[in-house]
Structure formats: structure tokens, C-alpha cells
Nucleic acid binder design. Structure first.
Length: 260
DNA sequence: AGTACCACCTGACGGC
DNA sequence: TGCCGTCAGGTGGTAC
């Protein structure tokens, strides 16, 4: 699930559980998820630190440490965090485990191991080095237009490009385009300014709604497409059939009569 | 600039 | 029951 709203929920979860607790030890179960440093340096640098604060940019989460570099967490396609005390509650695919001096643990879980953790000097430096675009919640309508105008690719591809705008992935891009009534394979350059303004409003609305609903699709408004991502389901607006296709090699759901 | 294709991983599911 | 292809909400590299 980890797109912008999911990562924002993870951030709030870490804030309300693991902040300001002294790290006693760090256990790396799968070295593959640690990037830009060795497992030894990673596990050696953290004990004695506390998590001071968190930030999020797009799908990345940054954790400020009091003595070491910032910690960057990315969740890939299957990652999440879990704070627990009893060993029985330890999630199955725990890849990194932080132990605090209050006896609790924070697990970084990633079944498919496509996520990653790395130390970074600062969030800004990392974002710059990767060329990430601004966070989707950090731009206004005019900036959105500037970022998208003149793009020749398909609108779904453009919205999912983290170098243009950071935060939207496959699921939420489909939802935003459904709410905006725009076909995912429409060329971005074919959209009028008014279309882009409407699209911007829907993007903000979808993201804010998703965060408000804890990124749980079963709590989304009944007008949302996301809980109906399966072939043969019916459109929440017109009751017609939801179609599935591929855009940029990704499974794409849309309503052929509500989107054009 | 844009796109197709492959790779990285694990696991669930449907067909045979 | 077992094997196999396909697919899954991410990203990065390569080749055209």
C-alpha cells in the first residue's frame, strides 16, 4: 500500500509510539534492505540515539536522530511498521528490529524486500540527489500546472513520476483520475488549464480524504473507486462496469463512461 | 522526453 | 497434491 497517504499514517504511528525512546540495539535480519552503508555501521551507529522527529516527502519517511544521521525509510510495495512488546507480536517478515530501553520494539516489516533503509545527511540532501519532485501536498494549483504543462506522456504516467510530483502511486493515481473524470491514458498535453485545475483539486481531496480515513480503503467514501479494484465490479457513479487495462505496465482500473 | 522491457524479491491464486 | 505462469499498491537501469 505504501503511497503518500499510507506513509503519512506510518509517520503518525511512529510519532505516537517510538519517539523519544532510547535505542538499545538494532537487529538487521536482511542485509539487503540496508542501503548506502554496511550492516555493521548501520547497527553500530544507532544505539544510544532516540528518534527526535519525523518528516515525510512523497513515499519517503525521514527520522531525525539526536546523535547520528537521519534515517530514511522507504516501504516498497509491502512495507509497514509495528511497535510491540511481546515476542509473540513480532511480525513474520520483520527485516529490521529496533529495541528500546522501555522493553518495546519497532519492527520494519517488508515481505517482498523491495523497501529500504538508509542513513542520510538530511532529507533535503537526499531529495536533491534523487531529483524528486515536490510533495503532492506541498504544491498549489499554479505550481501543479507548471509541473504538468507541456508533458507529452500519458497523464497517469506523469502523475506517477516521482521526479515530477512525489507521492502518488498506482492505486491513488487511478483514484484521482477517476474522481477527476479523466482517462488514465489521456495525453497530459491534451488537458486544458481548467482540466488541470480540476485534477489538482481532486488530487488534494483524494489524498486528504485517504489520510483522514487512515488509508483504509474500506473506510473510503462510497464514491471511491479504490475498494472496487477488481474486474467485473461496478462503477460507484454510473453502475457500469469497471474496466481493467495496462498503462505504463501497471494494472489500471477505470470507468469508460465516467472518464474521458 | 517518453516508453518498453527487465530486474530486484516473496507469496497468493488459478489452471492443468 | 504439485507445478507453472501471472500478478501484486515501487523503483532503477538500459535500449530505442
Amino acid at each position: 500500500m505504501p503511497e503518500l497517504p499510507d506513509v503519512e499514517i506510518f509517520r503518525g504511528y511512529l510519532d505516537s509510539t517510538a519517539l523519544h525512546k532510547r535505542i538499545e540495539s538494532v537487529q538487521v535480519e536482511k542485509a539487503r534492505v540496508i542501503k548506502n552503508t554496511t550492516v555493521e555501521d548501520f547497527t553500530g551507529a544507532l544505539p544510544g540515539n532516540s528518534f527526535l522527529s519525523t518528516r515525510r516527502h512523497g513515499k519517503h519517511m525521514f527520522v531525525e536522530m539526536d546523535k547520528a544521521d537521519w534515517l530514511r525509510l522507504h516501504f516498497g510495495m509491502s512495507g509497514y511498521l509495528k511497535y510491540f512488546r511481546d515476542a509473540d507480536d513480532r511480525p513474520e517478515h520483520t527485516r529490521v528490529l529496533f529495541q528500546f530501553d522501555n522493553g518495546y520494539y519497532l519492527a520494519y516489516v517488508s515481505q517482498r524486500m523491495l523497501g529500504e533503509l538508509s542513513p542520510v545527511k538530511s532529507p533535503e540532501e537526499y531529495l536533491k540527489s534523487k531529483g524528486l519532485g515536490p510533495d503532492a501536498l506541498d504544491i498549489d494549483s499554479d505550481q501543479f500546472l507548471d509541473l504538468l504543462k507541456g508533458r507529452r506522456g500519458m497523464i497517469k504516467t506523469t502523475l506517477m513520476n516521482q521526479q515530477i510530483i512525489a507521492g502518488l502511486g498506482n492505486i491513488y493515481t487511478d483514484e484521482v483520475l477517476f474522481q477527476a473524470g479523466i482517462m488514465p491514458d489521456k495525453k497530459t498535453s491534451d488537458l486544458k488549464d481548467d482540466d488541470l485545475k480540476h485534477l489538482y483539486q481532486q488530487m488534494i481531496s483524494v489524498i486528504e480524504t485517504a489520510i483522514e480515513k487512515s488509508a483504509q480503503p474500506d473506510q473510503f467514501p462510497s464514491s471511491y473507486l479504490t475498494p472496487r479494484r477488481e474486474e467485473g465490479s461496478s462503477c460507484p457513479r454510473c453502475s457500469g462496469e469497471i474496466n481493467k487495462t495496462k498503462v505504463s505496465q501497471r494494472g489500471t482500473y477505470y470507468c469508460p463512461s465516467c472518464q474521458s
